[in-house]
Amino acid sequence: MLDERKLDVLRAIVEDYVATHEPVGSKTLVDRHNLGVSPATVRNDMAALEEEGYITQPHTSAGRIPTDAGYRLFVDKLSTVKTLSPAEKKAISSFLGGAVDLDDVVRRTVRLLAQITRQVAIVQYPTLTRSSVRHVEVVTMTPRRLLLVLITSTGRVEQRIVEAPDDVDEQLIADLRSRLNTALTGQRLSEAAGALAGLPDTFQPADRALVTAIVTTLLEAFTDEGEQRIAVGGAANLTRYGDDFERNVKPVLEALEEHVILLKLLGEATHPQTLTVRIGHENPYEELATTSVVATGYGSKSEALATLGIVGPTHMDYPSTMGAVRAVARYVSQILADS
């Protein structure tokens, strides 16, 4: 177990390396940080940290840089999540609050998160299975064609066309619309099918064919998840890696093109109250061994509707990045709850 002085030295090394991207020497630590010990003592502490695997020397006669284990210890024990300033919070609230629908919320969130973290931002769209029904609308388009609209609690809108066997009776459509909303509003989509069981049998025999067609189409909308959607922004921020494109940047760019990989990266962030941080080789893909992922869920206090986060170099500013990811997720959760 490292004593407090060695932990202070590790914290200083991480902070300096994140700020300068240059290996850190003992003299630099003494000059920049009030460690209260001599350079010789700092050198001894650095030797101990290196032996424990928390720092390493990239080149002979160079200073030290943190390892994945060093960053992990920093994140777990040495850092505190940086809170945003009132001005930053107001700017986030204003920018996200101007969104007009779910797609706009996601687009704005990706753009905002990439800008304030200077990393690659990833936002997963809310999945249907975790949503509930907000409203069902049935609109007559032609005498024998209807538009079925499902609006979920996350602002997602699903539209389906229903072909009627005969000319539509507007009174029947009004009655059906009312019954559908009475039965479904507030129901989780994963459980809503049960609320529709037997509904066609409550109508007159002559109307049951149309009601059955509408109910069947609605059930398909409940379960038609399709490909899980994500939005990615800020890839240009990868230029902060420096000049080593082939080894660091190119593999990351290629991995970012695979949405399955991105969904798995965000997959551990299953709760809105918890930040997940995976550092370097903790990531399951070798292409991302030089990156870290900071992610969290967004939604209600008890359950995530989906996830969002960032991918960036391991030498990122963890306290600020973690604070930004957490704050943005909370604002998105609030916007979806109020919409």
Score class of each variant (00 low, 15 high):
residue 313 P to H: 05
residue 332 V to R: 01
residue 260 V to M: 10
residue 336 L to I: 15
residue 305 L to Q: 15
residue 171 Q to H: 13
residue 2 L to R: 08
residue 131 S to C: 15
residue 23 P to S: 09
residue 185 T to S: 13
residue 282 E to L: 02
residue 108 R to Y: 06
residue 183 A to T: 03
residue 88 E to T: 06
residue 264 K to Q: 14
residue 177 R to K: 08
residue 256 L to W: 09
residue 178 S to H: 07
residue 248 N to L: 09
residue 63 G to C: 06
residue 145 R to H: 03
residue 143 P to A: 14
residue 77 K to C: 15
residue 314 T to F: 01
residue 54 Y to T: 04
residue 320 S to R: 11
residue 63 G to R: 01
residue 117 T to V: 05
residue 12 A to V: 02
residue 19 A to R: 11
residue 137 E to V: 11
residue 179 R to T: 01
residue 135 H to D: 13
residue 166 D to M: 14
residue 79 S to E: 13
residue 148 L to I: 06
residue 322 M to E: 05
residue 111 R to W: 09
residue 287 E to N: 07
residue 51 E to Q: 14
residue 131 S to V: 09
residue 40 A to P: 06
residue 126 P to H: 14
residue 43 R to H: 11
residue 82 K to C: 02
residue 68 D to F: 00
residue 131 S to P: 15
residue 93 S to G: 14
residue 211 V to F: 06
residue 257 E to I: 03
residue 47 A to F: 10
residue 233 G to D: 08
residue 133 V to G: 08
residue 141 M to H: 11
residue 126 P to E: 13
residue 143 P to I: 08
residue 14 V to Y: 00
residue 81 V to H: 09
residue 117 T to K: 04
residue 116 I to Y: 03
residue 159 Q to P: 08
residue 256 L to C: 11
residue 113 L to S: 01
residue 60 T to W: 12
residue 193 A to H: 04
residue 30 V to Y: 07
residue 74 F to N: 05
residue 244 D to T: 12
residue 235 A to P: 14
residue 40 A to W: 14
residue 30 V to L: 03
residue 91 A to T: 08
residue 5 R to V: 02
residue 98 G to F: 06
residue 102 L to E: 10
residue 188 R to E: 01
residue 15 E to K: 08
residue 91 A to P: 01
residue 106 V to M: 14
residue 131 S to G: 15
residue 18 V to W: 02
residue 179 R to L: 05
residue 229 R to V: 10
residue 62 A to Y: 15
residue 236 A to Q: 15
residue 4 E to F: 13
residue 115 Q to P: 00
residue 179 R to M: 00
residue 310 I to R: 01
residue 123 V to K: 06
residue 271 H to W: 12
residue 262 L to M: 13
residue 178 S to C: 01
residue 315 H to P: 00
residue 102 L to F: 07
residue 266 L to C: 09
residue 137 E to A: 13
residue 300 S to M: 07
residue 150 L to W: 07
residue 163 E to K: 10
residue 111 R to Y: 13
residue 120 V to M: 07
residue 133 V to Q: 12
residue 335 I to F: 05
residue 247 R to Y: 14
residue 117 T to H: 03
residue 281 H to D: 09
residue 59 H to Y: 14
residue 212 T to W: 08
residue 60 T to N: 13
residue 184 L to C: 03
residue 191 E to V: 03
residue 206 A to P: 06
residue 145 R to K: 10
residue 331 Y to C: 06
residue 308 L to G: 07
residue 308 L to M: 04
residue 241 Y to D: 12
residue 66 P to H: 06
residue 286 E to K: 04
residue 238 L to R: 03
residue 173 I to M: 08
residue 117 T to G: 00
